[in-house]
Design a protein around this nucleic acid. Structure first.
Lengths: 370, 370
DNA sequence: ACTCGTACTTGAAACGCATCAAAGGGGCCG
DNA sequence: CGGCCCCTTTGATGCGTTTCAAGTACGAGT
């Protein structure tokens, strides 16, 4: 229980303090026998290097911090997963903190990570980026995820507008005449999806479109009640294609329609809009558009690496990838670091549950980017 | 970008180094005006305390580490969530690391947390606790989650046997005559569930029971193919109650049965066995037994706190809670610290999707323990 | 005027380690 | 035997804090 320190190991092994340190950090510098002796001593004594001291003495350690607003949202998990894999690939650790939908906690963990001499920090901010200006001048590389912001800084976001457009285009391709969008555009991401839908439909004035608010929280229950309401309508007033702004909503709608004896997708097609794994693995196949969370996490780490490698903070390029696979690159002479990437979502069309295991869904997810 | 340190703040504010430190840690010791001055200076300079140095100088910080085998498993997330809330309640931070199903990584993060002067560490180990003996003599309180182990140490686990028993008792209550268990008991938890099922059925020799292996990974696709196989059977050979060892399996079975024209639950009832939120929010209601992940996380932190508060490591009690709500407490004079808690799972019976939003499911989860 | 007490403030020491200039120890050649 | 060079090991130094014994200033009590 008494903490073993490096000097204990050194004394016990009959070598000097610096040699033990080398055994840990630059093993190639030691004679194999010395190394072996030291390693044995380390194990025998149960020595654990004190990370704090290491960091203090040696500068940043190879680890990244990731602050997420929630852990129970599939999207955040995909981010975490992508970030994790990319980080490991570069030999970095990834530590995750749950801000629990609380601005103050988010800020707290952010500062914590900054102060821990992490090599870089990523956040999926939950609200407006007001706090942001104060954060960009932090001494640690930082990347913002899933947020659209014009302030100087590094961002990676899903192209939510494309997300809406893609699903609308699917509806069009399926020959929809009357589309109902279910959900409240409670925040920017959802607003952009609606925008994308409208833009896609602007080219098809013959298609009727309506948007039904589903209450503040866009729950499955909300979806259910709206689905029930839709089911009540006469056949010609009923949409032939329903888009849930959220997969959870769509899932609720499907349940209601089915319960009321309306068959999906024969009579009414229903699609989701956010590729929520919670919905994927349901028993009813749900076509949806998946925002590439995995890819966002991955790109986030890449931007972090980029900042670390180009120590020169005087980065003056402005890159923008998206939408719809178009790539626009413009290099400005601005002094601001402004690097923003939009990652394109992908259609996840499901015909049967047979291929619905989470593992396979993940595979699809990854496959889309290979 | 240049890092501001405490001495910069001190110089700038015209006070001494120790005073700034006090402003941070013992504000009550300072004259209000001094405190105000220092705080202003801190903000103006954008000073961030170096956590490494703090920890080095001040001993452990108030934070816990949690190592999880995966992030995309609902159960782990519930643990994280419960641990998070409990930790915050005590004023501790919680940092999460994803071991990504890799023993080596798990060990790596464990050591990392140990060395970071965390106040305590929790693991949901993925495999056998072989490595464990080496870990218990670590200088930091540690709690193992979701694992059954007889070695001295602190553990919190779901009562998997009860989990099986409960679902079997449900089947009995529903008048089942022929029960089919689907899935491979690939690891201890699943084995215990099967055991529980058998124990419950031992009292009912008239009920026919069979176990069908579903392949190594227990995927939804595996469930689907077994479901299809069951559907092929003649009516009297077909079970009237199917238990998926895993909710994902159950979900696959349901899809297959439905696809083959067998109605669930009218002709065949299907239940899951692990309360996987991924399955809860599906469009088809699935009755399942939820292992109280949230509660496990919570209890884990409580055990951590217990270890921290009773600095005296000569704890000699052995408490065991469960199964079936019986509580057995025995105090031994053993020198070993052996504190093991079994948390009882609860039945999550679902009749309709109307109440299936994740928020409500969580509420049920919590409600069961209020 | 002197003492004592209270309320703050100071600054040196220690925390455990990485670093790196310098010292040590062979081996090889002349 | 001396001189060189290379490979390995050494240990003093500093990283940014916290802590705490010692200090200062001020006011009340006598």
């Amino acid at each position: 229980m008494a903490k073993v320190k490096i000097s204990d190991v050194a004394r016990e092994a009959g070598v000097s303090l610096g040699t033990v340190s080398n055994a840990l950090n630059h093993p190639e510098k030691l004679r194999p026998e010395t190394l072996k002796l030291i390693n044995e001593t380390i194990n025998r004594l149960g020595y654990l290097p004190n990370q704090s001291a290491r960091q203090l003495a040696g500068g940043a350690t190879k680890s990244f911090g990731l602050v997420l607003p929630r852990l129970d949202h599939g999207f955040s998990l995909q981010i975490a997963s992508g970030a994790h894999n990319e980080a490991r690939k570069h030999g970095y650790d990834l530590l995750i903190a749950n801000a629990d939908n609380d601005d103050i906690l988010e800020d707290h963990y952010l500062r914590y990570f900054m102060g821990t001499q992490m090599s870089g920090v990523m956040v999926q901010p939950m609200a407006s980026p007001d706090w942001h200006p104060a954060m960009t001048k932090m001494p640690v590389p930082i990347v913002h995820l899933d947020i659209h912001c014009s302030e100087p800084g590094y961002y990676v976001a899903a192209d939510n507008e494309a997300q809406g457009r893609i699903i609308a285009e699917l509806a069009i391709a399926r020959g929809a005449h009357h589309i109902t969008v279910v959900g409240r555009a409670a925040f920017m991401q959802l607003t952009l999806r609606v925008l994308g839908i409208h833009k896609a439909l602007a080219l098809h004035p013959d298609i009727k479109i309506e948007v039904i608010d589903a209450g503040e929280w866009n729950t499955a229950a909300d979806g259910y009640s709206i689905g029930a309401q839709i089911a009540e309508r006469s056949t010609d007033e009923r949409p032939d294609f329903v888009i849930g702004l959220t997969d959870v909503l769509a899932s609720g709608v499907i349940s209601a329609l089915t319960d009321k004896g309306i068959s999906v997708p024969e009579q009414v097609r229903v699609a989701g809009c956010d590729g929520n794994p919670l919905a994927w693995s349901g028993s009813v196949p749900l076509t949806t558009v998946a925002p590439p969370g995995y890819e966002i996490g991955r790109k986030g780490v890449q931007l972090l690496m980029e900042q670390i490698e180009n120590k020169a903070p005087a980065k003056t390029k402005r890159v923008r990838i998206g939408s719809a696979a178009r790539t626009v690159t413009e290099v400005t002479a601005a002094e601001d670091i402004n690097r923003q990437e939009l990652v394109r979502p992908f259609l996840l069309e499901r015909a049967s549950t047979q291929a619905s295991s989470q593992a396979e869904a993940t595979a699809i997810n990854l496959g889309a980017y290979l």
